[in-house]
Computed example of a mutant assay.
Amino acid sequence: MKLYKYQKYSHQTLGSIIKNKIWLSGAKNFNDLFDCKFQQDKFTENEYIELKHINDFRKKQDIPYVDLGFSKFEFNEIIFNDVKTNAMYHGAQEYLYEFGIFCLSEIPDSILMWSHYADNHKGICLEFDVDLKLNNTLLAVNYATKYPKVSIYDMGINLAKTTHSILATKSADWSYEKEWRYIVNDKSDQLINNPFKLTSIIFGARSKSEDIETILEAVKHNKDVSFKKATQSNTDYEMLISDYVHI
């Protein structure tokens, strides 16, 4: 499967390509105010008891768990105390912000994404070959009109599934991006080794000739990488992608 990353050209971008690295962003700094948010859903006393037993087991086995942060005697007070409930969910939200996310798209020819993410067509778009079987934290984004509804119980029973559900859900307004997300725990705002194979670099319709030459020189030893160019159609509102011919 091919997935694409639109980027502004910079020394940092060039360095990442040369070193075969990718930058994982934290959701707290995303441009979408609604990204990675969820609705609070309360849970029952029976669910609390079940979750308490599960957590005790996970502690002994050194398995990640959701810290309830209160005793059974405080349970009823918390259920009817919005301040304490909100504090619990605030902690869960901060936990989500610790994840590093690498955003990709199914399409390399989006006019909006070339404009928004690739410096008004002056940047580049990286093409990656992705094996979904080898990347189980690479998730297709679900587009919705409402936040995912999540309780602390949901997070406690299946932390990975619930976390991924929240981190891979966005407003339907963004559906044109056809986004996928590579998600890594506790790696927010960090540079990591690239888990995918870079197969092509697409230059923007307004890419500067000196930027193109710099990239060609930097990547010339990697025979697995091809070069393409995005151009503006003369008849339709669309971007055309074709092989780059070096003159």
Rank of each mutant, 00 (worst) to 15 (best):
N55A: 03
N55D: 11
N55H: 12
D56K: 10
F57A: 01
F57C: 01
F57T: 07
R58V: 02
R58F: 03
R58C: 01
K60W: 10
K60F: 08
Q61P: 00
Q61E: 06
Q61I: 00
Q61M: 05
Q61R: 10
Q61T: 03
Q61D: 04
D62R: 09
D62K: 12
D62Y: 12
D62T: 07
I63F: 11
I63G: 01
I63R: 08
I63V: 09
P64C: 00
P64L: 02
P64E: 05
P64G: 00
P64N: 00
Y65G: 02
Y65H: 14
V66M: 07
V66Q: 01
V66A: 03
D67A: 04
D67R: 07
D67N: 09
L68A: 08
L68Q: 15
L68P: 08
L68H: 15
G69Y: 08
G69I: 09
F70G: 01
F70N: 09
K72Q: 13
K72D: 10
F75R: 04
N76C: 08
E77W: 14
E77H: 13
I78N: 10
I78R: 14
I78M: 09
I78K: 11
I79C: 14
I79L: 14
F80I: 13
F80H: 15
F80L: 12
N81S: 05
N81M: 02
N81L: 04
D82F: 12
D82R: 11
D82L: 12
D82I: 12
K84A: 04
T85E: 12
T85A: 04
N86Q: 13
N86C: 08
N86R: 13
N86V: 14
A87P: 05
A87H: 14
M88Q: 13
M88P: 09
M88S: 06
M88R: 13
Y89H: 09
Y89T: 09
Y89G: 04
Y89F: 15
H90N: 04
G91C: 02
G91K: 08
G91L: 07
G91T: 05
A92R: 09
A92G: 00
Q93F: 15
Q93H: 15
Q93D: 11
Q93K: 15
E94C: 09
E94R: 13
Y95E: 01
Y95S: 00
L96Q: 01
L96C: 03
L96G: 00
Y97L: 11
Y97I: 12
E98R: 10
E98F: 11
F99G: 01
F99T: 02
F99A: 01
F99K: 08
F99D: 01
G100P: 10
I101H: 03
I101P: 01
I101Q: 03
F102Q: 03
F102E: 04
F102C: 04
